[in-house]
Design a binder for these strands. Structure first.
Ligand code: ZN
Ligand code: ZN
Ligand code: ZN
Ligand code: ZN
Lengths: 149, 149
DNA sequence: AGGCGTCCGGTTACATTGTAACCATCGGCG
DNA sequence: CGCCGATGGTTACAATGTAACCGGACGCCT
């Protein structure tokens, strides 16, 4: 959980994007780093305020466009139940995720979805539904906050 | 899928609420019926416009409060990825659900979550996380829209 | 080099979604 | 009757997200 860890994550993400031929511009880099620096979900406007303070973003659309890019490349996820974004160090292309969201400390832990995805695919197949994207978010209390209750 | 079916759903929902001792007011009844009448997710402001036209709701907060009540009682669900609401005829108290959301026709089919919930509980338990609420939404194409492609 | 097309982001001006805060009313209950 | 909790009317915003238009950068072809 050190700062170094997160910087590394951003740096490695940029390498992966470069290898993939994606255009990694200054704005996108700034948004990526800002996301990776946090270990909590961040709202688009929070992000905007940070970047604006450093003259790195001009207006909300810039931030949303960068976020769309990062989500599309699988370097970030949007948490639908928080309207917030988190960086992702999985480095695959646009994978889906299951988030354990703590309402005590606002942490959001990403966990693999293999088993859940399989079940979702089953549910969908039974009804002839073609899955494109999956949102799985669990709200509750993490181990720490549960103890602290 | 007849209109009668939806009216019945609303009527039975009201009975269940009454038996439960919940206060079913005119506003809440109106919102419930409006929700059940649709077979698609409805935005809060769409709902508001409908009710306003009949002088049934005065302002957005009224609608949101009624929706919170209905969701709390398990008579409606919020779709986080659409910012919209759907009625529910399950009549249990505040159950969770899995929605198959078609981006072609905007239908949202609610399917049971027993298997998924089990897997989510497993994922959570492994990390000492206490689950309170679960959001599972799958976006894609329903059988009809897939064929029509 | 010059022209072209595409991608990116700046900018403005909104649209949509959701809420805080305060007060009036209503209905049960001591 | 007077209190109290629940409900909802009202105002005024806050927070989140976008459409549309433009200009600059960069690669690519001639
Ligand atoms: Zn991820
Ligand atoms: Zn926590
Ligand atoms: Zn339901
Ligand atoms: Zn469809």
């Amino acid at each position: 959980m050190s700062t170094a860890h997160h910087c590394d994550a951003a740096a490695r993400a940029e390498q992966v994007l470069a290898r993939r031929g994606a255009r990694i511009t200054q704005l996108r880099r700034d948004v990526l780093r800002a996301l990776m620096r946090e270990d909590r979900p961040v709202g688009a406007y929070q992000l905007f305020d940070q970047l604006k303070a450093r003259d790195a973003a001009s207006a909300p659309p810039a931030v949303y466009r960068a976020l769309d890019f990062l989500v599309g490349e699988g370097m970030a996820h949007k948490l639908q139940s928080l309207n917030a974004y988190v960086g992702c160090a999985c480095f695959e292309h646009a994978h889906d995720a299951h988030f354990l969201i703590c309402r005590g400390c606002n942490a959001a832990e990403e966990v693999p979805t293999t088993a859940i995805r399989k079940q979702v695919d089953t549910d969908a197949a039974e009804r002839g539904f073609a899955v494109e994207r999956m949102v799985v978010e669990t709200v509750g209390l993490c181990a720490d906050c549960k103890g602290r209750a």
